[in-house]
């Protein structure tokens, strides 16, 4: 069947309009649910970094658990001054876009959690580069701003079975109890040691064999992100 150009043109215009309208309706309708999912996942990650598992918890209740443990949140700048103290706004900071700003303009979020035993833990979001794409995570510290309470990492596209293992327990568990500063107070961060860290190494954990670049990426991510908080740590330690 041959159709005139006019017919084809009108046909395509109608098609485009119908498709665009219906897609926009779907997208707008589903947006809240999708954003909820992303928010809840972030909450689960933050909780996991202080070793609170929400795997068994219903999705809706994650928010309650989060509100129970996470008591406050603020954002500081590189000089250690608080620039944002509204919890909702701090939560909404997207590390992916924040890290692209010049260092002086970056807002550095931190969350404070009260654990079951009454301890306070400080949770710091991390963002860096793995081998194939972004890696990110959270690290939580005791109030001595030195001892690690727990960590969680995730990644977008690391090699399955190798670099992708950073989100597994066997990789994150050894971080617990490690310290960031050497005895004379210099910032050493955590080293991810190829071939395995010595048992009594206070700053080292095992690397993933075969996942060298991802391991290095995680190490650099922890170093870089925590470095920005140094002024804040100093201020808090002096108080």
């Amino acid at each position: 069947m041959e159709h005139s150009n006019k017919y084809i043109f009108i046909y395509s215009v109608i098609m485009v309009v119908v498709v665009a309208v219906s897609l926009t309706i779907v997208a707008v309708q589903l947006k809240p649910a999708q954003e909820d999912n992303i928010r809840i996942e972030k909450m689960q990650n933050i909780l996991a970094s202080v070793n609170i598992s929400t795997a068994e918890v219903q999705k809706k209740q994650v928010i309650d658990v989060y509100n129970k443990y996470i008591v406050s949140a603020e954002a500081v700048n590189i000089k250690g001054d608080v620039v944002e103290s509204d919890q909702a706004k701090v939560f909404a900071i997207d590390m992916g876009s924040e890290i692209k700003k010049p260092i002086e303009d970056q807002r550095l979020p931190l969350f404070k959690a009260t654990l079951d035993n009454g301890d306070i833990a400080l949770i710091i979001p991390l963002r860096g580069k793995g081998l194939w794409g972004p890696v990110w995570g959270y690290i939580s510290l005791k109030t001595d701003y030195n001892t690690v309470v727990g960590t969680i990492f995730d990644h977008k596209a690391e090699t399955p079975g190798l670099g992708a293992e950073i989100n597994q327990d066997w990789f994150t568990a050894p971080f617990k109890g490690k310290t960031l500063f050497s005895e004379n107070g210099t910032f050493t961060s955590i080293q991810i040691v190829k071939g395995g860290a010595a048992d009594d190494d206070p700053h080292g954990v095992d690397a993933i064999s075969g996942g060298t670049i991802t391991s290095k990426g995680v190490e650099k991510m922890i170093y870089d992100n925590l470095l920005s908080y140094q002024e804040y740590f100093k201020k808090m330690n002096n108080q």
Partner: peptide, 16 residues
């Protein structure tokens, strides 16, 4: 493509 986008949006909303 339109149907796939709808399916993708639904998946993101309900089985994240």
């Amino acid at each position: 493509a339109a149907l796939v986008i709808i399916v993708d949006q639904l998946l993101k909303a309900y089985v994240y």
